[in-house]
């Protein structure tokens, strides 16, 4: 009988992944990398859901993961479209170059 990985390990891993993603959104300047960091946060959430789903023996968490995956795909599509549009104006994907709005 193999020893099982405890639930807390999965939760800790997803918390670390989430923090790396959140840190990346705040620190990185390249919009494409920011999008990847947001994706990482979403996937950390997915891991948490799957962990709890398994732990609680309930299917709701897995259904939620499918919802998140679908929405994440839609968000990336919209985000990249917005970036293409902005790139036409500025020929850049650096967030600091998008500074037309200031007060």
């Amino acid at each position: 009988m193999l020893e099982q990985v405890p639930v807390s390990h999965y939760l800790l891993l997803s918390a670390i992944l989430f923090s790396i993603g959140a840190g990346g959104v705040l620190i990185r300047r390249n919009v494409i990398i920011v999008l990847m960091c947001i994706e990482m946060m979403m996937n950390a959430v997915n891991l948490t859901f799957i962990t709890f789903s398994r732990y609680l023996d309930s299917a709701t968490g897995q259904i939620f993961v499918f919802m998140i995956m679908a929405v994440a795909a839609v968000e990336v599509a919209v985000g990249l479209a917005l970036l293409v549009e902005l790139n036409r104006h500025k020929q850049s994907v650096n967030i600091d170059d998008f500074n037309a709005l200031k007060g």
Binding site: V31, I38, E75, G79, L82, L86, I95, F98, A100
Partner: peptide, 19 residues
């Protein structure tokens, strides 16, 4: 330009908040 920028900023922070 400002309109696209507004959409982009809203998108990044909105997705961040959703996470």
């Amino acid at each position: 330009m400002g309109s696209g920028e507004a959409g982009m900023k809203y998108f990044i922070l909105g997705a961040f908040a959703s996470a």
